[in-house]
Amino acid sequence: MSTSGSIDPGAPEVAELATEVEGALLSAENVSKIFGGLVAVNDVTVAIPRKKIVSIIGPNGAGKTTFFNMLTGLYKPSRGKIVLDGADITGHRPDKIMAGGVARTFQNIRLFSTMTAVENVMVGQHARMRAGLIGSILRPPRVGREERGTREKARDMLGFVGLETKTFDELAINLSYGDQRRVEIARALASEPRLLLLDEPTAGMNPQESEVLTTFMKRLRDELDLSILLIEHDMKVVMGVSEHITVLDHGEKIAEGDPATVRANPRVIEAYLGKQG
């Protein structure tokens, strides 16, 4: 299907967006990513308001993960601008962006598999710690306190995401799939983010687990005041938690709006039907 040009310029969503960008926590403005000849993301604008859950959906290969990778600094946008809380972070290093309060999980879990669950979450706090080379060697009381604090917080986080205490010191590779997903979320949360990016977090989960995760995301928003940007295939989850949905197909934004609007959009239906055949 051809999807050149975005949705009608006069559509109400665009006007709505313009007002949202103002106070947005993070906004991506007209970003594109081109790999060689392939346009993986084409001129996409998305704004993530504070303390809201926003989703990106779209068929496989639509460019969702690539978009994430640009937000987190792994990829540099070929065009466009990314603004975090008023500051332009386009092209900044991933670790800087993470330190600025954007944490993520990966579509294919990327835990440090030879570290324990606790150690993984401790790594997540790297940017919030201060010990340097000399400090690590001499370990003055300040560093000792920091180390203990980090460990305690890691355990708290793991408890918070629902991991059983007895698995805290298991190597990540030996954890069940669901637990690995949990640890990844804990690792991201441990960095005290303002914005959490979740790339298909329910992939491989059964309906009950997805249900639990849905509630959990709402808790994160309400209790920790987090914004969440979610990539998700499970429509039940998406429709259940999202306040705003952006639909990508072939790298382009083909629709956006609240769940009801998006669900009713003929282009969205076409994109999904087209994909599933």
Partner: peptide
């Protein structure tokens, strides 16, 4: 183990 994950977790 994984440079990409490491840098995404804030490790310079």
């Amino acid at each position: 183990e994984d440079e990409v994950a490491a840098v995404s977790m804030g490790i310079p």
